[in-house]
């Protein structure tokens, strides 16, 4: 009888523990990669801010050639894209791969708006004679936003791969750490852009 009581206590402890388990989504390696990426971006941001402090007129003139609306719509596109990715993770956890795939397609479509807007902005700047060698503002602007642009492209490739695997019903509710890792990378790209938008388009 005492052993039965002990056994029941042990089971309830396990259930209690699993209910309150704090789990890091995705793979640990992806989180270390994200921390590394965030550190690199932080260094670029601080470099941009220090240069702005040293050469304020150049940055005021440079910002005047950028469109705040482009920055706004790029931000909205990435936020909405991240929203669809978060919803797709929930769908996978409920075992609904087809819904997850559909959410990823929406995420890719909204991310495409960002791509089109950035290409349009780069083209307009180059047409007006501003490129990476014009002055320090444009060097930093093209470098930071271009580096982020490449991350968006990589993120879109990852999302497309995840959508393909979801279409094949490859993810299970209890085995989706790869899916979570890909989604987390995309949210990191969104997080970085939120700070880029603040630093380049909003602050003046």
């Amino acid at each position: 009888m005492p052993s039965l009581v002990v056994s029941n206590l042990a089971v309830s402890d396990v259930i209690e523990q699993s209910l309150h388990e704090q789990k890091l989504p995705g793979d640990l390696a992806m989180w270390f990669f994200i921390l590394m990426e965030l550190t690199v971006f932080a260094i670029f941001f601080i470099g941009f801010a220090i240069t702005q402090r040293l050469q304020p007129e150049m940055f005021i003139d440079g910002r005047a050639t950028l469109s705040a609306d482009v920055g706004l719509f790029c931000t909205l596109a990435l936020i909405i894209s991240s929203y669809f990715v978060a919803r797709s993770v929930e769908a996978v956890k409920r075992g609904n791969n087809l819904v997850a795939k559909r959410q990823l397609v929406f995420a890719l479509l909204t991310a495409s708006i960002y791509i089109v807007l950035k290409i349009t902005e780069y083209s307009a700047l180059v047409e007006h004679g501003f490129d990476i060698s014009t002055n320090t503002f444009y060097t930093l602007y093209f470098f930071i936003t271009g580096f982020h642009f490449m991350h968006v492209l990589l993120g879109m490739i990852i999302l497309a791969f995840m959508a393909k695997r979801a279409k094949q019903n490859a993810y299970q509710p209890n085995d989706c750490s790869g899916y979570e890792a890909g989604a987390t990378y995309w949210h990191m790209v969104d997080l970085v852009w939120v700070i880029v938008f603040f630093l380049i388009y909003i602050i003046h």
Partner: peptide
């Protein structure tokens, strides 16, 4: 205001989208 705004946006992305509100506290 814009600095506070970007902090709140960052918190929403990390806690809700990245699901860190249910992750180990240190992370």
């Amino acid at each position: 205001l814009v600095t506070l705004s970007v902090m709140v946006k960052g918190q929403q992305i990390t806690d809700i989208f990245m699901e860190l509100n249910t992750a180990p506290t240190k992370w």
